[in-house]
Design a protein around this nucleic acid. Structure first.
Length: 297
DNA sequence: GTACGCATAAACATTA
DNA sequence: CTAATGTTTATGCGTA
């Protein structure tokens, strides 16, 4: 599905689209990152840095945002912890020299935040330790909003930033989204149109689940698999059914209206969908969305 | 003063 | 056993 909102005519969805985010060069600082203390291997490659303070300062992004960007920047929209580490280190040299505690913070965020979901690796594909992590689709708009605000703050406060200790000497501005930015095919499939509601907290029902819980992806636990295994009485991951990926898989968006299409073509309005999402999360391992919908099918 | 979000540290359990 | 990973608790700080 193409990016709704007619990219050629609409600027509205630009910042909610991740075209700028997906492009490594756009996501990351366009200029070499300044650093406060020399990083030998990098300094040797760039012996004459321009206008650089000696050391990289801390990026203006929270750990949650960093994790989000790392996952979003991955081809499959899912990363192991190690992959998240690597992305952060590669993207923000601050963390190359930073004490190791930030890795603890990353893991802490992954575990504690409802924004991220853990996916068990397939046994056959289990190369390396641990699980893969993805972004919960319903939290993606909030992340985008945070990044957008960070972007605007940085983009419109250059002078202020230069006087702000936290950002002093940094160039972490997320580039202004341009309508001419090329969009990869895979990303264009996941572009979402911002909700008509101005509220960033309103889940704007992405067109595709960012957390790729697609049935055809045999590396992940599809909802069909969940239902099957639950029916078979096998022990399931605690919150797998509360994963709104089931809902997201059936999202369609028609112009400004969004519907949840339940199996059986039952359409619900946005408000009902949101209630259902909340209920689904509150009632983890709830047996049936149809039951939540009030008898349903 | 309080609540909240975030960062950080640490202890502990699990797993490859 | 070791290291990586994952969970949980505690604490401090800044901000609304």
């Amino acid at each position: 599905m193409p990016c709704l909102g007619s990219p050629s005519t609409s600027d509205q969805g630009d910042l909610t689209c991740l075209n700028w985010l997906h492009q490594r060069g756009n996501l990351l600082p366009l200029q070499p990152l300044p650093r406060m203390t020399p990083l030998p291997q990098l300094e040797s490659q760039n012996p004459t840095p321009t206008r650089h303070p000696p050391s990289p300062s801390k990026p203006p992004y929270s750990f949650s945002s960093l994790i989000f960007m790392a996952i979003e920047d991955s081809p499959d929209k899912r990363l192991p912890v190690k992959g998240i580490y690597e992305w952060i280190v590669n993207s923000f040299p601050y963390y190359q020299a930073a004490p190791g505690g930030w890795r603890n913070s990353v893991r802490h965020n992954l575990s504690l935040s409802k924004s991220f979901r853990r996916i068990h690796r397939d046994k056959g594909q289990s190369v390396g330790k641990g699980s893969l992590w993805c972004v919960s689709p319903e939290y993606r708009p909030a992340f985008l909003e945070v990044l957008r605000k960070t972007h605007y703050y940085n983009a419109t406060n250059d002078r202020l930033l230069s006087n702000t200790p936290l950002l002093e000497g940094t160039d972490y501005e997320v580039p202004v989204v341009s309508g001419t930015v090329e969009i990869s095919d895979s990303l264009s499939q996941t572009l979402l149109l911002s909700s008509p509601s101005p509220s960033a907290l309103t889940p704007p029902l992405s067109l595709n689940p960012v957390c790729p819980l697609t049935p055809e992806d045999d590396e992940l636990v599809s909802m069909e698999t969940v239902e099957y295994e639950e029916a078979a009485g096998e022990e399931m991951e605690k919150d797998s059914l509360s994963d709104s990926g089931y809902i997201e898989l059936h999202y369609y968006q028609y112009h400004q209206y969004q519907y949840l299409v339940l199996p059986g073509d039952t359409e619900l309005d946005l408000e009902t969908v949101e209630i259902l999402q909340l209920d689904a999360e509150a009632q983890e391992a709830a047996g049936s969305l149809l039951d939540l919908a009030g008898g349903g099918q």
